[in-house]
């Protein structure tokens, strides 16, 4: 009996877990090949980005967090999960094209590629999260049991990213312009998600639904709830239900598109 597609997929991923790790490691090393600091850039680059944005927003715009919280606390808890989302989508879109050398010449389970980029992004995410924890503790935010909730929001972020990656990386094979479009869309999504700005009082009520509909906002908000506000994740269960629906829909659509396009990869690449 042939198992259903999701089961088969799961089997394939578990069976190829060593390949996933090896490819992710390869991806990280190749990115910084020839640089002096090597893998350190994986953390240094986002850390510096965070520093620049934080500087601009505090020094130039005198930004404050909600309830007069120092801006850095609000900002760092938002940007760290956002970088996980944007980096893995941005690079995952190139996934199939970048691994054309394997797909064309050998029997290669290309559906594992989004996981490769997730694993790679997760490495720097964990490191950055550690950095964020240091910032939090230094600013007098006590560590709490609610920090563990980040795992839940991390899983949600990964689920969303996975569906999007399957969709985009498969379409990318046929339309290379997509890579550019994704960059622009991610930029747009960055500003449509409350990462650097505080929604209270900024968003007019008639546009508030955009914030609600944006599943990334749920993730970002969730990280803040866990790290700063000490709120359990189930308080906003209705929103959670909505986001999980979106997540599953993305997985089904992305997975189906990928499965339908996969036989064409070797022909087009």
């Amino acid at each position: 009996m042939v198992p259903a597609p999701p089961v088969r997929l799961l089997q394939r991923i578990v069976g190829n877990r060593r390949s996933v790790v090896a490819l992710a490691r390869r991806h990280l090393l190749a990115r910084y090949a020839g640089t002096l600091l090597g893998g350190l850039w994986e953390v240094l680059h986002p850390a510096l980005t965070i520093l620049v944005l934080w500087f601009v927003f505090t020094a130039a715009f005198h930004a404050r967090g909600p309830h007069d919280m120092p801006f850095i606390l609000y900002f760092v808890t938002g940007i760290v999960p956002w970088l996980l989302i944007s980096e893995s989508i941005n690079q995952g879109t190139q996934g199939v094209v970048a691994h054309g050398f394997l797909i064309k010449k050998m029997v290669f389970p290309s559906e594992i590629l989004p996981f490769v980029y997730l694993v790679a992004s997760a490495v720097s995410h964990v490191l950055l999260l550690g950095l964020a924890a240091v910032v939090l503790l230094a600013n007098g935010v006590p560590a709490s049991i609610f920090w563990i909730q980040c795992i839940y929001y991390f899983v949600v972020a990964c689920g969303l990213v996975l569906g999007i990656q399957w969709l985009l990386s498969a379409l990318m094979v046929f339309h290379r312009d997509l890579g550019q479009v994704v960059g622009v869309l991610l930029n747009l999504a960055f500003w449509a998600t409350p990462v650097v700005w505080v929604p209270n009082g900024v968003v007019p009520p008639r546009l508030a639904w955009i914030l609600y509909a944006n599943p990334f906002a749920y993730v970002i908000d969730g990280y803040r709830k866990s790290l700063l506000e000490r709120q359990p994740f189930w308080t906003d269960w209705a929103h959670g239900l909505y986001v999980w629906t979106v997540l599953l829909a993305l997985l089904v659509v992305g997975g189906t598109v990928f499965r339908r396009l996969k036989p064409h990869f070797a022909d087009v690449l």
């Binding site: 190749a30 090949a33 050398f101």
Partner: peptide, 17 residues
């Protein structure tokens, strides 16, 4: 399989890698 030149290699990586 050694299909044409290439055989599943990434040109940016070293032979060892």
């Amino acid at each position: 399989a050694l299909l044409e030149l290439g055989a599943g290699f990434n040109p940016d990586l070293t032979g060892r890698e």
